[in-house]
Every structure is written in C-alpha cells, then in structure tokens.
C-alpha cells in the first residue's frame, strides 16, 4: 500500500475507476465479451507505446519520436511484401528489429553524444517521419492479412491483443525484479548516486531505450494489424498520448518515480475517456475539445497531487 502511494498510482487509479464507471454506464454491453475484446484491441497499441515511454522516462530521458517511429514501422510493414522476406512472421520479426534499431539510434544520440533527449528525439522523429513518407507518400498499400488475422485471433479463448499486453506487463515485471530494472529506476532517481555506486549510467539508459522501442515495435505491429494499410501519419498522436499517460500514471518526468503499472493505468484512462466521449453521444466536433480538457484536468490533478506528496 505504501509502495502504491509512493508510486503515485492512487490518484490515477481513482480516475480510472471514475471513467470506467462512466464507460460502463454509457456503453451498452460493456461487460460482454465482444465489447471487451473490442476495447482491448483498441487500447493495446496505446498501452504498449505508453509503457515504452514510461520505461524511458523512468531513466530520466524522454522520447518524442515514438509516434513517428510507429508510423515508420507501419509503413515498413505496408511496403515490404511478406513473401519477399519469408512470410508474415519473418516480416513482423524484421519490424521488431527495425524498432530496436531506431531505439538504438536514439539511445546512442542521447548517451554517447550526450544530446538532450527532448530536442534530439524531436529531430530523429522528423527523420523517422520523413522516411515513413518516403515509403508511403499517400495513405494506402496493404499489409499481409495474416498479421491482421493473428491479431484478432484468440489463444485458449484469450484474445491475442490481451495476450500481448499481458506479455508486455510480464516483460516489465521480470525486468522490474531484475537488477537491470532497478538500475533504470536508480539512474532516473539520482544519476549522480548511481554513478558513484558504480552503475554504468549511459549503458543503463541505452538499454532503457532498447526495451522501450521493443514495445513500440509491438505497438506498431498491433496498429498495422488493425488498419492493414500504411499511413505515415498513423502514429503522430501517440507521442502526446504517451507523454500524457506517463504523467497521468504518476510517473515523474524528472525520472525515477513511478512504475509502468502507472503508465498502464494512464493509457487506460486516456483510452476509456475517448470511449466515454464517443458513447456519450457528444457531437464529434466537441470530442477533440473534451479530450484536451480531460488531459489538462488530469495533468493538473496529478501535478497538484505530486506536489503534495513530493519527497524533499
């Protein structure tokens, strides 16, 4: 309980309960299997990308190129025919490798060249977006249907998207109990202390980027499986969403404070808010405005809450 309070998850859990209650009231058959599967497959990419941002933020860095990276991976999947690389599974493997490569580039720029991640990933984001546009100038193209089928399939009656989310959380739980995960938090909490304790700060941050981008890769594949086409703009919104989810989830942008569970909650809050706005029958023109307001309100709530419980 104390760990929860310290992680700052309680206020975000409260928010989650509120929006869930609203959603359950507004969405017919919210508790039916069909709606559940529907919701899960919609939320999965957001959750994965928010988790990615969370891990990077925990190490006291930031990545503003996540959205553009998602677009690039999506366009890669839409451009390269599965048959050319040995089937859809190989293609997905390559997409994950691409994600790792992008993460490695960002990680290197931040750790080896020492550029501030805020603006450096802003720059690499422009490059990713440019490359995505080069591959898919106009939204279109097709992605191997197998990928879509895999995504909407179930294994032992469990929908695949849910499995992916569970796998991602499992990965984090494993890392979180591993030396590596604790070192990511230590580096974010106090880099000087970490350095003095003999922790290779740059290496740990680099690995945080790699782990984060692996999740970005999964998220991009999930999005592609839903749209089955390429679009260089498909990931753009995820950058803001991921940063907002991280803050709503009680993860300090100053690093070291919070858990990926918070990011999960933050991502769910944002996803369900979109649901609520949709099912509440709010005219479409108001949706953007309400979304913005909710984000601002949630941020304000979290900022005030974090101030109140701040550790001196």
């Amino acid at each position: 309980m104390r760990a929860l309070r310290h992680a700052g998850v309680i206020p975000s859990l409260l928010m989650l309960v509120v929006v869930l209650a609203l959603n359950a009231r507004l969405q017919h058959h919210f508790f039916s299997m069909l709606s559940f599967e529907d919701n899960v497959s919609t939320f999965t990419p957001t959750i994965l990308i928010c988790l990615a941002q969370a891990i990077i933020v925990l190490s006291r860095e930031l990545d503003l190129s996540l959205g553009a990276g998602v677009s690039l991976i999506n366009c890669f999947l839409a451009t390269v025919p599965a048959s050319a690389v040995g089937g859809p599974w190989a293609l997905m493997g390559l997409a994950l490798l691409l994600a790792l490569a992008l993460g490695a580039i960002n990680g290197l720029i931040v750790t080896v060249f020492g550029l501030p991640s805020l603006i450096a990933t802003f720059a690499t984001g422009a490059v990713w977006y440019g490359l995505a546009l080069t591959m898919v100038p106009q939204p279109g193209g097709t992605i191997d249907e197998t990928i879509g089928n895999v995504y909407s399939d179930t294994v032992f009656h469990i929908p695949v998207p849910l499995l992916i989310v569970l796998a991602a959380m499992l990965i984090w739980t494993v890392i979180g109990r591993h030396r590596l995960g604790r070192r990511i938090v230590a580096v974010g909490s106090n880099p000087v202390a970490a350095f003095q304790a003999g922790i290779p700060v740059a290496g740990v941050k680099f690995i945080a980027y790699l782990v984060g981008w692996l999740l970005v890769g999964l998220g991009a594949i999930a999005i592609s499986a839903q749209t089955l086409s390429g679009d260089a703009g498909v990931g753009t919104a995820y950058t803001l969403t991921s940063v907002a989810a991280v803050v709503i989830g009680g993860i300090s942008l100053a690093g070291g404070r919070g858990t990926p569970w918070g990011a999960l909650v933050g991502a769910l809050v944002l996803g369900i808010v979109a649901n609520v706005i949709y099912f509440a029958g709010i005219p479409s023109i108001w949706q953007e405005f309400f979304k913005g307001l909710v984000i601002v309100a949630a941020l304000g709530f979290m900022v005030i809450e974090q101030r109140r419980t701040a550790i001196a």
């Binding site: 942008l253 941020l299 900022v303």
Partner: peptide, 19 residues
Amino acid sequence: LGVPPLVMTLALSSVVDGG
C-alpha cells in the same frame, strides 16, 4: 505550478485546437 513546459504547452495546444 511547475508543470514541465513540454507537457503544459502540448496539453494547452490540444485544448485550443479542440476549442
């Protein structure tokens, strides 16, 4: 309030755009 500028200006821009 001490909100990081990135978050503050992004959030407000989404409100303005929505409005």
